[in-house]
Design a protein around this nucleic acid. Sequence first.
DNA 1: TTGAAAGCGCTAACAC
DNA 2: GTGTTAGCGCTTTCAA
Lengths: 337, 337
Amino acid sequence: MDIKIVDVAKRAGVSPATVSRVLNDSNLVTEKTKRKVLAIIEEMEYHPHAAAKQLRSQRTMTIGVIVPDINVSYFSEIIKGIENMAYAKKYKLIICDSDNTLEKETEYLELLKNRTVDAMVLVMPFMNDEELYELADKGFLIGVVGRNISHDGIPTCKTDNVKFSHVAVNHLLEQGHRSIAYIGGYSDSAESYERLEGYMKALKDHQVPFQPSLIDNGDYQEMGGYNAMNRLMDSGTPFSAIYVANDEMALGVYRVCLERNVRIPEDMAVIGVDNNRISRYINPPLSTVNQPKYAMGALIAEKLIDLMTIKEFAEKKDWIIHSDLIVRESSNYQRNE
Amino acid sequence: MDIKIVDVAKRAGVSPATVSRVLNDSNLVTEKTKRKVLAIIEEMEYHPHAAAKQLRSQRTMTIGVIVPDINVSYFSEIIKGIENMAYAKKYKLIICDSDNTLEKETEYLELLKNRTVDAMVLVMPFMNDEELYELADKGFLIGVVGRNISHDGIPTCKTDNVKFSHVAVNHLLEQGHRSIAYIGGYSDSAESYERLEGYMKALKDHQVPFQPSLIDNGDYQEMGGYNAMNRLMDSGTPFSAIYVANDEMALGVYRVCLERNVRIPEDMAVIGVDNNRISRYINPPLSTVNQPKYAMGALIAEKLIDLMTIKEFAEKKDWIIHSDLIVRESSNYQRNE
DNA sequence: TTGAAAGCGCTAACAC
DNA sequence: GTGTTAGCGCTTTCAA
């Protein structure tokens, strides 16, 4: 039989209430009693039953994260950031992998509804805005990473898509490129649109005409980038550079170039987004926009925990973190046209 | 105020017990009552309180995993395997990142002791065998991936280190190499020893003398491989091939070769272990031993869940999964000495 | 500063 | 097939 709080209390010659106070660091206990109880706890190897504590106190000290794929370093690094902040603030973390499906994402939200977690971080959720609003309106605490949510109750953290895309495409233009393709993420998503906006701004700065036939979309996965690149190259409009909405899809672009004997960067300059670990190791090393993933994770976790602690929003609820362009070999080749 | 089982019961005109039966799929309920209750549950958006259920039933339907670093694909793929099996069997998963420290690993074990999880999977734990035995002896359910544990109560899953190392080094010998270095993992670990054993067996098969100065150790991280490779190359004993205990360390080996203008595979053949995703993308693509990570994760999760369900061991408690050598460019160069 | 006692929301034994 | 009721192990008033 497991040992419980009454057992400790009896052995220590105090009441369960006192043991509870010791466990929860109440200052209503004498230093002496505290030491005695602590000693007994140690001796008996007592471990407070989590479920009982949670039921009584109505909090779990646990936060959840739902990511589309834990294997993708963009997500696992965000998780690292959340995990470290959570750990520092004594929160536990439940990590959920939605396998890139809305179905699993929805199912994992049950953890919030059945109070397994006190709050949930959604990273690049598939769910639409309205469903997210509804959750917040019902009093569930959620935070979102990588997407804009216009709801007072939902803190968000993302990077400035327009800005860094502008910078990235600008870099390509400065290398002399005049026909630059773009592969976005999901075609209906805000961030794809924003990245396209940055792309167009850069073209405009350099008075380069916009060519719709150089625009395509993928699904943020390698295969999606592969397919989009093939479509672009088959479409007939020539281009010498490409800006890809994430590094995963850039991997697919690399594969197409290899298969078609297109040299990077001589024949085709490539820039990705995310600074996934792998981008540094591929051949040639991929220029990319560094998304401060760890920082975004830590920040959203901190805000959510603050919210649970002080129960009200600070002056700000949406956080934009700065991203840097990292120029590597894949875009480092001066053209003279 | 949140709605609870009595509220549902009242509205449905039944007792809480009946609602509970419906929720838990008991067959002691009329199809009609069931439908009615289910409708009310839906209508009221009732979500059973997890902690209450756990406290009463003394099980959480949750398993935990502790990995050294969630960012390393070897671990995140094992997690994927566990997660999918858990999901299929209606278990939730708590993922813990020990940050490569024994301290955090130990702390996360608290989740098992305080009954937050019903079982815990330890992937490449830092803890020594005795502590693991002690946990099992106290009745905690644990499973271990990537290490041999000689305890009846602890199921394990790993690959055959001796065998695949034998195969890998054999491949190197068949390419004509006669001086082959080896970088192991932690010098005191069983798997490092087993891999060394396979290495030696292969040498013996080909009557190649063993040279202790060609053996070094790292810590399974890139930097460890980098340092070990530098030491080996500075030691004075020449070698034309190297077998590295994991792909992460092989990345460090690649870096040394780059810095010293040693060409892979012409001047130096390299074989890693794990078949991390990155190994396929680096230049040149790395030959490696494919560890069936997903399968190992799924298997240990299945065994653990079986154990909780039927409460006794099957005929077998330690599982060895087969690993294949994947030959890529880094070792594909025929020597003529 | 400490103790007694109520109750968090659910399940399961028992009664009907 | 359904209802009544006790109690899982803890925290937190309230009283002393």
